[in-house]
Design a protein around this nucleic acid. Sequence first.
RNA 1: GACCCUAUCGUCCAGUGGCCUAGGACACUCCCCUUUCACGGGAGUAACACGGGUUCGAAUCCCGUUAGGGUCGCCA
Length: 444
Amino acid sequence: MSVRTRFAPSPTGLLHVGGARTALFNWIYARKHAGVFVLRVEDTDHSRNTQEARQVILDGLHWLGLDWDEGPQKGGSFGPYYQSERNHIYEEYLSRLEKGGHLYEDHGAIRFRSPREKVILQDEICGRIEFDLTNPGTHPDITLRRPDGSWIFHFVNVVDDIEMKISHVIRGEDHLSNTPKHIELYKALGAEPPRFAHMPLILNRDGSKMSKRDEGAALGSYPEQGYAPEAVRNYLCLLGWSPKDNREMISISEVIALFELNQINRRNAAFDLAKCFWLNGQYLLQMDLARYTELAIPFLEKAGISWPSYESLEQVLAIVKPKLKLLRDLPEWVIPFFTEEFPYDKESVAKSLQGNDRGESGSARLEALSTAFAELPLWNASALETSLKETAIKLGVKTGELVHPARVAASGRSVGPGLYEMLEILGPERTLIRFAAGAIKAIA
RNA sequence: GACCCUAUCGUCCAGUGGCCUAGGACACUCCCCUUUCACGGGAGUAACACGGGUUCGAAUCCCGUUAGGGUCGCCA
């Protein structure tokens, strides 16, 4: 049997991380078995079903690198892939149920008469579960169609999974209790039910239900903040699944190779943004410069930063890259390299340039440094370091007493990349001008 | 309320009867490295929900209790 999985989101205006993880596991499973991953948009009757809302889903999946083989923008043999365009199919299936005597009308709505049996589900993750549907009081007949003609989820979902020949339904555990009803529908339609795999849900750190407004809930917030998609994807893989060898960083190809549905943890997982943040830092650190630059550019453009050439941009990013965990923070770190209009942090100026009654000495130190640097035959990091340390000895102060004022004078900030690398890139002219300006600030 | 799922450090995972005085990671604390911030290295705090069984032996199996989550829609 060929594997066909699907992700069937509803366009609500945002892609929830829980949904993203469901999509991810479906995608992984399809890739592992050289199968097909289908994207189907369940947009039956919602007013909030807008083009923008649909786009959020597509963008989110694209960002995570989850390419679908059939679906919107892609086509496929079982389309259309928007439920709103599949009316004729639902009509056909409904009449089949009708002919089979499975339907009845109730206040204009069409309902499915349950056969009232015990239903056994052999779930790939949860194991064997027996549901007793014999009591109509506790398990009422489900509605398939509203009086206004619109369709109910349970029906169209099952019809589409049959039509699209879905072999494995991998979805959130919130559907577990609905599954026996779905199985009844499959049987009434004479279709073999797919394999089901119900994944545990994602909760907040405190164990409460994760709602749309909770931090980290919207997938769209990750690209905005400067997370690398590979890092978020890695984090999501580890929520409920593990390679069993204590690895935290794992490539997606390895996940695909090792992944098994029955190894998915059955316990709900709490979402820990701090760990995702850390993992992002690890990815950024190990990422090659070209990829890093690619990810960085949108953030710099958005901040209105321009750079003279790609090479000079890479040069700056190279020394800043090991310092940051979120691309969002990048602009303030690189501004001093590309403009003279960079801001001076008040506290840093007060502390490192002026300080108590050190104004004079801060000024004197910068001047001494300028004198030493001006005589440098070669302007590079190691020459600058040697020269600075010699100057420190000459003045009888600790290295840091020169480094800090120099950093603030050169960049306006007390944190940043290595001072010598920074000055090397800045070059002698800009460095000396900034030192002079800093010396004035020190006594101002 | 009924039904279903679950229960190991604060969090994510490892552990499928003896290798567990329970391991890794994040977070937190301290130390080292260091011009800052990071990175890296080292140390530390911290968990088998509770009660019964089964067994020579239980975090691991069974039952119950409790707790959390889910479903019970003419939402998806």
